[in-house]
Design a protein around this nucleic acid. Structure first.
Length: 465
RNA sequence: GUCCCCAUCGUCUAGAGGCCUAGGACACCUCCCUUUCACGGAGGCGACCGGGGUUCGACUCCCCGUGGGGACGCCA
């Protein structure tokens, strides 16, 4: 049997980090076993689904490189088929019309809650042999309910959580078609998983409670029951449930914030799944290793610091051309033109080992292309001392007649330091301030090399006149 | 409230009865490297939720408790 997995988001918002991990695992499982990964858009909630959200999900998937083999299938385009199946269930007596109004149902639930019971439909419109149904009200359009078994239990061996059994007495006759005739989520999932021949349903564990209902419907339809794997949720950095206030909940936000997709992917893969002591690995390796046996069944807290560490790692590994182009765009977004001036590839090479995000990288090298920010007055006072000025003047004089190579600049600097009997930082610090505006940078001779002779001398002269 | 799920360092995790004086990674601390800050290298700190069983032996199995989380919609 060929493995067929699916990712079935509802387009009511962007692709968030939890959804991305679910997609990643489904995708990897299909890849691992040479199966197919299907993308299905669950847009039956007409009120909340938007084309923008669909696009956001597609963008997120594409950015991460989670390519799908079939789809995207839209449930709204399969309405005809759902109606057919509903009619079939109706005809076979496996579903029935219910005329209870929303108000009536609310009242029922309230009462049940008050009695300490689990709120569930009481089957008032469920036909039974010898049972008299209420008189059909005139102006209540009926919903269709699935006739769930009354006794026994539904069991399955969850590939992540192990054996789970839920009594049918806990379940009720769920609505499969609304009053307006449109099918509901749990029903569409069943029909789709069935007809798309899904073999492994990998999804968030908020669906554990839907599973027994879906299994019952699958059985009523005579369909094969897929294997289920319920993934635990991802908690925010603060251990709380992920929500808007956590900021970067959308995967694309990570792109905006300067993360490389391979870092996000690697981080997500390792969140709730493990392969011995392996921490850093490619998606190729992941697809070879991934299994459902090593998924943790407990919730995992998101840790930005570890993501940062991975991102730093991947920035160091990244193709220089690709990295530079990305940075060029980020600089442009900061209204800085990196087409003129020092060679961006050289600048990026010099700085990539020092940052953990691309935004940080862009931020740190901006002074190469824009004017250096004004150095901190206190730092200036401390390092740009009257005693050092003549030394700097001497250095500039030497530099003016120096061929602009890393080696030559280094020699000029070293000689100046030696001739004046100084420690290296004594000279390097004021240079750093004048050239970069800050007290931290790579070796100052390397910065000078990349900055260029003209610009270096120009920036120094501002302090020496 | 009812049902379901979960429980190892601060965080992500290894661990499928003896390999565990519980391993790795992030973070943190110390030292080294050093032209500042990073990077890198070497060390260090740091955990099996509690109580009962089962067993010669339990982080691992069972039960109870406690604590988290999820689900109970004409949302998905």
């Amino acid at each position: 049997m060929t493995v067929r997995t699916r990712f079935a988001p509802s387009p009511t918002g962007y692709l968030h980090i939890g959804g991305a991990r679910t997609a990643l695992f489904s995708w990897a499982y299909a890849r691992r076993f040479g199966g197919s990964f299907i993308l299905r858009i669950e847009d039956t909630d007409l009120e909340r689904s938007t084309p923008e959200a669909v696009q956001a999900i597609l963008d997120g998937m594409n950015w991460l490189g989670l390519n799908w083999d079939e789809g995207p299938f839209y449930q709204t385009r399969r309405m005809e088929r759902y109606r057919e199946v509903i009619q079939k269930l109706l005809d076979e007596g496996k579903a029935y019309y219910c005329y209870a109004s929303k108000e009536e149902l609310d009242l029922m639930r309230e009462k049940q809650m008050a009695e300490g019971l689990k709120p569930r439909y009481d089957g008032r419109w469920r036909p039974e042999p010898g049972k008299t149904l209420p008189a059909i009200p005139k102006d209540v359009p009926p919903v269709v309910r699935f006739r769930n078994p009354l006794s026994g239990k539904v069991e399955w061996n969850d590939l992540v959580k192990g054996h789970i059994a839920i009594s049918n007495e806990e379940l009720d006759d769920l609505i499969i078609a609304r009053a307006d005739g449109t099918p509901t989520y749990n029903f569409c999932v069943v029909v789709d998983d069935w007809e798309m021949n899904i073999t492994h349903v990998i999804r968030g564990d908020d669906h554990v409670n839907n599973t027994p209902r879906q299994i019952n419907m699958l059985r009523a339809l005579g369909a094969d029951i897929p294997q289920y794997a319920h993934l635990s949720m991802i908690l925010g950095d603060d251990g709380q449930k992920l929500s808007k206030r956590h900021g970067a909940v959308s995967v694309m936000q990570y792109h905006t914030d300067g993360y490389l997709p391979e870092a996000v992917l690697n981080y997500l893969a390792r969140l709730g799944w493990s392969h011995g002591d392996d921490e850093v690995f490619s998606m190729e390796q992941f697809c070879q290793w991934f299994d459902l046996d090593h998924i943790t069944s407990s919730a995992a807290q998101f840790n930005t610091e570890k993501l940062n560490w991975l991102n730093a790692h991947y920035i160091k590994q990244a193709d220089l051309g690709r990295l530079s182009e990305d940075i060029r765009t980020r600089l442009a977004d900061m209204a800085i033109d990196a087409v003129q001036g020092p060679d961006l590839v050289q600048v990026v090479t010099l700085y990539r080992e020092r940052v953990s995000t691309l935004n940080e990288l862009a931020e740190q090298i901006r002074f190469f292309y824009a004017l250096p920010p004004t150095p901190d007055a206190e730092a200036l006072q401390k390092h740009m001392t009257p005693e050092i000025l003549p030394v700097l003047k001497g250095l500039v004089a030497t530099l003016e007649n120096t061929e602009w190579s890393a080696e030559a600049i280094h020699h000029a600097l070293a000689n100046t330091v030696a001739e004046n009997g100084l420690k290296f930082p004594k000279v390097a610090m004021p240079l750093r301030l004048a050239l970069t505006g800050g007290t931290q940078s790579p070796s100052i001779d390397q910065v000078m090399t990349v900055l260029g002779k003209q610009e270096t001398l120009k920036r120094l002269s501002a302090y020496l006149s």
